[in-house]
């Protein structure tokens, strides 16, 4: 056990010659909903992938619950990637079986219930599902676990505003309250209300790490407004408006 759920020190990651993270120091405690905010290419996805062990840091250290990334940390991390990872021959229930086998904190019944409430038929073949439906299945897989750390990479990009509300509500009503949720997004106004803390990433560095209440109190403006101010110089690239 550690005081901080996530701890990074001097984290540096480059793809070839192109740096994606340039010295990130970060500590996030348990039971928080944290926004990882930044324009595209600022290193959000890189940081999340490092935390779930899909890539390795070039230099620096990172720990989840005080442990280096490995089977132990993976057992308590629930990761929503920015892409589909299914083998097409499977059905949603096959994936639920798989998750039940590997993750002790996966609740099968809850997953089925969530499918029902999201209008997904769990016995349908994934191949036959629309993109939106597949995304819902992926969301169910992630939120039906009572994980210690949820890593959600752009969960609301590329969907319409109604679906956005719906996804955020699903996250809010299903996450494990002792757990921490890290949401990466560039659509800040949509997630601002659900966040405890905001982390601003710019060109691979942390510009600001502060509670949302403090930002509003000190700056007298929303996180979204502050974000727009800080990143004004950069052209924003929207994801699927």
């Amino acid at each position: 056990m550690s005081d901080y759920l996530i701890q990074c020190r001097g984290l540096y990651k480059s793809y070839g010659l192109r740096p994606a993270l340039r010295g990130v120091d970060l500590a996030v405690g348990p039971g928080r909903i944290v926004g990882l905010l930044g324009p595209n290419g600022s290193g959000k996805t890189t940081l999340i992938k490092l935390l779930c062990g899909l890539i390795q840091p070039t230099t620096g250290t990172l720990a989840v619950d005080g442990s280096a990334i490995g089977p132990y940390t993976k057992s308590m991390v629930s990761y929503l990637p920015d892409r589909m990872y299914f083998a097409s021959w499977m059905k949603a229930v096959d994936l639920f079986d798989l998750f039940r086998d590997f993750y002790a904190d996966f609740e099968y019944e809850k997953a089925i219930d969530m499918c029902r409430s999201l209008g997904v038929e769990p016995r349908d073949r994934l191949k036959a599902m629309s993109k939106g439906t597949k995304e819902k299945v992926q969301l169910v897989l992630v939120m039906a676990r009572s994980a210690r750390l949820y890593l959600l990479d752009e969960p609301i990009a590329g969907v319409d505003p109604a679906a956005r509300d719906f996804i955020l509500r699903t996250i809010l009503t299903n996450y494990n309250e002792e757990g921490t949720v890290l949401i990466s997004t560039h659509l800040i106004s949509d997630v601002e209300k659900v966040l405890d803390e905001a982390i601003f990433l710019k060109e691979g560095k942390i510009m600001l790490h502060e509670t949302v209440d403090n930002i509003r109190e000190k700056e007298g403006k929303s996180v979204d407004a502050l974000f727009r101010e800080i990143f004004r110089a950069e052209p924003m690239e929207g994801g699927g408006f």
């Binding site: 779930c52 062990g53 089977p71 993976k74 892409r83 083998a87 590997f102």
Partner: peptide, 17 residues
């Protein structure tokens, strides 16, 4: 595909070595 492609996102986040 399974370990170095997109399905690797699933396999490498499983709690296994």
């Amino acid at each position: 595909k399974g370990l170095l492609g997109s399905e690797g996102y699933l396999m490498h986040t499983l709690p296994v070595w």
